[in-house]
Amino acid sequence: MVQKSRNGGVYPGPSGEKKLKVGFVGLDPGAPDSTRDGALLIAGSEAPKRGSILSKPRAGGAGAGKPPKRNAFYRKLQNFLYNVLERPRGWAFIYHAYVFLLVFSCLVLSVFSTIKEYEKSSEGALYILEIVTIVVFGVEYFVRIWAAGCCCRYRGWRGRLKFARKPFCVIDIMVLIASIAVLAAGSQGNVFATSALRSLRFLQILRMIRMDRRGGTWKLLGSVVYAHSKELVTAWYIGFLCLILASFLVYLAEKGENDHFDTYADALWWGLITLTTIGYGDKYPQTWNGRLLAATFTLIGVSFFALPAGILGSGFALKVQEQHRQKHFEKRRNPAAGLIQSAWRFYATNLSRTDLHSTWQYYERTVTVPMYSSQTQTYGASRLIPPLNQLELLRNLKSKSGLAFRKDPPPEPSPSKGSPCRGPLCGCCPGRSSQKVSLKDRVFSSPRGVAAKGKGSPQAQTVRRSPSADQSLEDSPSKVPKSWSFGDRSRARQAFRIKGAASRQNSEEASL
Score class of each variant (00 low, 15 high):
P411L: 06
H328N: 15
R214Q: 04
T349I: 08
Q341R: 14
P335S: 14
N258S: 11
L107F: 04
S352P: 00
A317T: 07
V250L: 08
H260P: 10
S223P: 15
S358F: 04
G315R: 07
G281W: 12
V320I: 01
R201H: 02
Y237C: 11
F261I: 01
T378I: 01
T359A: 08
D355V: 08
M1T: 02
P335A: 06
G159V: 05
L339Q: 08
R214W: 09
Y280C: 11
L356R: 06
I340T: 12
T217P: 05
T217I: 09
K230Q: 03
A265V: 10
M1V: 01
G418V: 01
D212V: 13
K219N: 09
R353H: 06
L206P: 12
T217N: 12
E119G: 04
D266E: 11
A62V: 06
V175L: 00
R291S: 11
G215R: 13
F329S: 10
E254D: 12
A267T: 12
I311N: 04
G290D: 14
A193V: 05
T287N: 10
T234P: 02
G271R: 15
G271V: 08
R207W: 09
I209T: 08
D212G: 01
F104S: 00
L356V: 04
F305L: 15
I205V: 08
P285L: 11
G159E: 07
F304S: 12
R210P: 09
G8S: 03
I340M: 07
T296P: 11
K162R: 01
T263I: 02
S199R: 08
H228Y: 03
Y264N: 15
D266G: 10
L292P: 13
A253S: 03
S113F: 07
I238L: 00
R144Q: 01
I278T: 12
S247W: 13
L101H: 09
T114I: 08
M1K: 06
N79K: 00
P386S: 01
V250G: 10
A309V: 01
D212A: 14
N350I: 05
E322G: 10
S342L: 09
E231Q: 10
K283R: 00
L197P: 04
P420L: 01
L351V: 07
Y362C: 05
V182M: 03
T276I: 08
A306T: 04
G215E: 13
A185G: 05
A343S: 02
S314P: 04
A185T: 03
Y127C: 09
G222D: 12
R198Q: 05
I278F: 14
V225I: 01
M211V: 03
R210H: 06
D259N: 04
K283E: 04
A337V: 04
T276N: 06
L243F: 07
V225D: 14
H96P: 02
R207Q: 13
T277S: 05
T274M: 12
L388F: 03
A193D: 05
M208V: 00
W344R: 06
G313E: 01
C169F: 00
A306P: 01
Q188K: 02
A147P: 08
Y284C: 06
K319R: 14
P285H: 14
I273M: 10
A178V: 03
L81P: 08
S247L: 12
T263A: 10
N190H: 06
R333Q: 00
G290V: 15
D172G: 06
A337G: 09
L351F: 04
S247P: 07
A265T: 11
I278N: 15
L249P: 13
L206R: 14
K255R: 01
Y284D: 12
F304C: 13
G281R: 15
F248S: 02
G239R: 09
N350K: 00
L318V: 07
R210C: 08
D212E: 05
Q341H: 14
R213Q: 07
A235V: 15
G281E: 14
A294V: 04
M211R: 10
L221R: 11
E231G: 13
P430S: 06
R214P: 09
R333W: 07
L203P: 03
A294G: 06
G9D: 00
W360C: 11
H260Y: 03
R332G: 13
N350H: 05
G279C: 15
H96N: 02
N258Y: 11
F261C: 00
R353G: 09
L200P: 02
V225F: 05
S122L: 02
L339R: 08
S195C: 12
D355E: 03
G189V: 02
W269C: 15
L268P: 11
V250A: 11
R325G: 10
G279D: 15
I273N: 12
A337T: 13
W269L: 12
Q204R: 09
A306V: 11
P335L: 15
Q204H: 03
P285S: 14
N190S: 02
E130K: 11
G256R: 14
G290S: 14
Y154D: 00
R144G: 13
Y280H: 13
L293P: 10
D259G: 04
E231D: 13
A196V: 02
T194I: 06
T114A: 00
L312S: 03
G301D: 13
A253T: 07
H228Q: 05
S195P: 02
A265P: 09
D282V: 15
L268F: 00
L307P: 04
S55C: 03
T359K: 14
C242G: 10
L85R: 09
D282N: 15
L243V: 05
G159R: 05
K230M: 07
G301S: 10
R213W: 07
K331T: 12
D259Y: 07
